[in-house]
Amino acid sequence: MSVEDRPEHAEDVIELLVGQHMLIRDLFAEVQTATGEHRAEAFARLVHLLAVHETAEEEVVHPLARRGIDGGEQVVEDRLHEEREAKEALVRLEGMDLGSEEFDAALALLRDSVLQHAHYEEAYEFRHLRGRYDQDRLETLAAQVRMAEKAAPTHPHPGNETAVKNLTVGPVLAVFDRVRDAMRGGGSQGG
């Protein structure tokens, strides 16, 4: 079983997103150690996963946290600020030579801030949400995120050449937009 398949076992949206945090962490490590084409391919997977993940959080989780937890407005503002910075850093990375020292340094910085961001979400948002919302609701939201993920795949499936091609050529911002459209359309668009 590849690591990418693991969140399929997740039952609610919090478990799904915690699982994605782990995948993101492992993918950063993979990009850092990979070279050449493997690095380009792993980086493309990372961009897609971050797009799906951050968009799901913005569209689904942050609104719940805003309304549902004490100080939610401010907590969410802090997270959105971190997410904007991460997206900008990704766009900068996209313009760099993947084999350069500049890329290594920028990637290491982005990794630190994304992992820190994930830790804050788990500590200040996720752990409060489960006490606040019922399980059915959290499971329905997980289904919504998974559907959007299918509409804008985060990793190539064997034999699906078009997906591989899309994955490696998509500019960062376009990927985020595509995921957002898919999520807002409940998975009916894209594909």
Binding site: R6, P7, H9, A10, E15, V18, G19, M22, D26
Partner: peptide, 9 residues
């Protein structure tokens, strides 16, 4: 189960 990651990591 809780962190969706394998201990082999």
């Amino acid at each position: 189960m809780v962190q969706h990651r394998k201990a082999e990591k």
